[in-house]
Amino acid sequence: MKIWTVANQKGGVGKTTTTVTLGGILASQGKKVLLIDTDPHASLTYYFGIDSEQLEISVYDIFARGKNMKKEEILQSLCPSSMENLDILPATMAIATLDRSMGNKNGMGLLLKKALAKLDNEYDYAILDCPPVLGVLMVNALAASERILIPVQTEFLALKGLDRMMRTMELMQSSQSKTYQYTIVPTMYDKRTKASLEAYKTLRTTYGDKVWPGVIPVDTKFRDASLAMKVPSLFCPKARGVYAYEALLKYLMKINGEASL
């Protein structure tokens, strides 16, 4: 199972949209995909019409019970989506308490990685949707990941959020003796505005080939798909935003040495 984490220490840059859209495209290609919500706001969970307040088991239990949680119990906590091959590990507000209750305990940073290892033969891909705040949840999501996708809105303030994210990864790399593979994904690009043009130019100049050469354009179809609680690749397969994510997926598979369908 390949594990990708979608992360940025700024909200509103397209993390959940990226998670849902890539997951939907992979599932439509016949890949077995697990989407994991590690954000207390539970945007990914609500996207699929799952009421987080009604859940008996969620991603919270992986942290609360740790290695004592068996594979069968993890599988029982998953929620199927309306799309074949696509399942959700939902979040609840309870995970907002993890930093206070468990943040200082040893070994907390690898709980999610160890839990996902138990599902290794169940899925082809797991994609994690991260909170915009550095803490136990983000640390676990980054530690579990093989590649980090960093959506960055093409505007000035979002570039400042990217600076914080890069510093976080540098700190974690030094503490874990691990080199993160990451791709910066320019999002909400509007070629009509000078702000988008300048922000994209700055990204390319500053981060070079770590930036995906394409862009995810502003596309209202993403909002419509969210309202309908359907993945964009099913709801609006010919939307320009979906085409952009298909191009991103081909790029990711190419740099990972995989064959795209």
Rank of each mutant, 00 (worst) to 15 (best):
L162N: 00
S196T: 08
E155L: 10
S101R: 14
G214D: 13
Y189D: 11
A228L: 11
A117M: 13
S174M: 10
D224W: 10
T97R: 00
L197G: 06
T154H: 08
L149S: 00
Y182W: 13
L128A: 05
A228K: 10
L197F: 08
L142N: 09
S101F: 06
K113S: 10
E198S: 12
A225K: 06
A115R: 05
V185I: 15
P186L: 15
D120N: 12
Q173S: 11
D190L: 09
A195W: 13
F156A: 12
D163P: 10
K105P: 03
R147P: 07
D99E: 10
P217D: 10
T220D: 10
T179Q: 06
M229E: 00
P232E: 04
K191L: 08
G107A: 01
K114R: 15
D219E: 12
C236T: 11
Q173D: 06
T179N: 10
F235S: 09
D219M: 14
L134T: 06
G107N: 03
P232M: 10
F156C: 14
T154F: 05
Y207S: 10
T187F: 08
A126W: 07
A117Y: 15
K178L: 09
G241P: 02
S177V: 05
K178C: 07
D124L: 04
V231P: 05
M138D: 03
F222G: 02
L234M: 14
T97Q: 02
T168S: 12
T202P: 00
S226G: 10
Y207C: 08
P237K: 05
G241D: 00
K105E: 06
Y180C: 01
P213E: 10
L119I: 12
P213H: 13
S196Q: 08
L111E: 11
L128E: 08
L134I: 03
T220E: 12
I184N: 11
K114D: 13
I184W: 04
C130H: 00
P132C: 08
D99K: 05
L149N: 01
S177L: 04
Y125H: 09
N140W: 01
L149K: 00
P132T: 06
M229N: 07
G109N: 11
R223M: 14
P237N: 02
M165I: 05
K118T: 09
Y180I: 04
F235D: 06
M169G: 00
V211K: 12
A143C: 04
L197P: 00
M188E: 12
K201G: 13
V242M: 12
T205W: 11
T202H: 05
A126R: 05
